[in-house]
Computed example of a mutant assay.
Amino acid sequence: MQTQPFEAAIFDLDGVIVDTAKFHYKAWKRLAGELGFAFSESENEQLKGVSRMESLDLLLRAGGITEVTTERREVLASRKNEWYKEYLATLTPADVLPGVYDFLGQLHSRGIKTAIASASKNAPLILEKVNIRPLFDVVVDGNTIVRAKPDPEVFLQAARLLDVAPAACFVFEDAAAGVEGAIRAGMRVAGIGDARLLARAHLTVTSFEQLNPVSLLSYIGVTGFTGWGDCANEQ
């Protein structure tokens, strides 16, 4: 079976490149506490990969709060974001997740283009704090898109800016909404995290450390590799 060559890798940011997911949860949990209800890590999974306002709506529903004015929603979302940015101030390059630098290096050495595709409006701040922006050819974030994941807009915009066909892109995501958005964009997708939560992904790993040089070279057609199921048929 022949498929489109692998020409570009598109990455979510929070929880994929940098360990910021914990800060989102900490800020949402703090907001829930102020509103008078508990917010669990399992409930927080539903917020991953979606926009700030959609996340707020999910949080409010989890707390049984349904009557909130537009103005109040804006205030609550802004409060959460200010707390989140306070937590981000503690970020350093050490917060880049294990295996990321090596994996990006392998991609660049083989001419694979790279992009960030994130729903976060704080992506520029995060990339600055961890000093990783130069490793990506393109950054598309919540400041430049209209529709949040699972809409495919962010991935399609990244592909356009990279001048690569969607079918030639491989997306790396830690959220079910992001996996769905990548599939809708016509891209292959690797889930980074719990396979049970990312069941729609074409393959799942728990860390970029699992994507070693042998498997990467095999995937882009240098040698035979059958460890990734249907996605390995790139010869």
Rank of each mutant, 00 (worst) to 15 (best):
P150V: 10
A123T: 15
A123E: 09
V138E: 09
A119Y: 01
S120P: 05
T114R: 07
P152H: 09
P134R: 11
A158F: 11
F136H: 08
V139C: 13
K129E: 03
K149Y: 08
I132K: 04
K149L: 05
K129L: 14
K121C: 08
K121Y: 02
K121W: 11
Q157Y: 02
L127S: 02
A117C: 06
E128D: 15
A158E: 08
D141C: 13
K149H: 07
S118C: 08
A123M: 13
F136C: 02
A115Q: 13
E128F: 02
V138H: 10
N131L: 09
K121Q: 14
I145G: 02
P134I: 02
V138P: 03
T144I: 09
R147N: 14
A123G: 07
A115T: 07
A119S: 13
E153D: 12
P124L: 07
P124M: 06
E153T: 07
V139E: 06
D137W: 09
N143Y: 05
F155G: 02
L156E: 06
E128G: 05
I145W: 06
K121H: 12
F155E: 00
K113A: 13
D141Q: 02
E153S: 06
I126R: 10
N122D: 14
N122R: 08
G142Y: 06
N122E: 09
P152W: 06
I126S: 08
V130N: 07
N131G: 12
N131T: 11
N143Q: 14
G142T: 05
D141N: 15
K129M: 07
V146E: 15
D141R: 01
D137H: 14
V154M: 11
N143C: 12
E153P: 05
P134W: 13
L125A: 10
F155I: 05
L156M: 12
R133A: 15
V146F: 04
S120D: 04
I126D: 11
A148F: 02
T144R: 04
A119R: 01
F155V: 00
P134A: 09
V139F: 11
T114D: 10
F155W: 12
R133H: 13
L127F: 12
A148V: 00
K113W: 10
K129R: 15
S118D: 07
A117H: 03
A158S: 14
L127D: 03
